[in-house]
Amino acid sequence: MRNDTRRRMYDPWPEGVQPTVPIEGYTNTWTHTPSQPAYRRPLTRTEVTGPADLWRKLHCGDSNLALSTTGKLAQGLLMEVTGRILDEDGRPVANAIVELWQANAAGRYTHALDQRAAPLDPNFLGHGRVRSDESGTYRFLTIKPGAYPVPVKDTWWRPPHIHFSVLGPSTLSRLVTQMYFPGDPLNDWDRILQSIGDPAARQRLVARQLHPAEVGVDHLGFHHDIVLRGRNATPEA
């Protein structure tokens, strides 16, 4: 029984959900993407397990990106992003490590590699790491990121987005993805988002804006559920 469950735990990716690569206009995908197809392998214990208490290694608890260590608020529209980490059966994934990073309100990252002529915000580092609770919920307070251009010949702009890296219960549930904002026209022109063929799959990367009456006057509110690969038992603490 246990073995049967394990074998059925990961279905093949549905058509159109994974990005189509390499991507026109994203130069690095032409030199970094494997040219050979990945080999199908049997799933053994190594693939269906993962670290049980990763927060002992990766410090969690940086859920407030908007407030700097000096006690000053970052520039931009304050917003709270919350949602649940789920498995393919819709079961909450507790104790997932959720890492997120983003540009500031002017579309610039606090990162040595981002040398664009847009202002840095001394009160915004733009990254945090949290741990999902028993109901799989994560929550963080930040500011809405700005768009930024991709410096290639046929210029395109990345729409406002938040990068997510999620470490769930197994190696195969490891997910790196991005969250987008509803209604931004740049979404339709973003070569990265549009590399996903299935419109419904693209839509699942777009957060849902919460009604202001639900959220209040302090900040905007967005809801974004993150579904990981697999049907998993959650490692115990």
Binding site: W13, H163, T177, V227
Partner: peptide, 20 residues
Amino acid sequence: HMRRIPLSQHTIGPFFPADY
């Protein structure tokens, strides 16, 4: 417990935080 489809993967891009 409805069947859900995993979110699409993306690149980490060039700006993965050095502090991580």
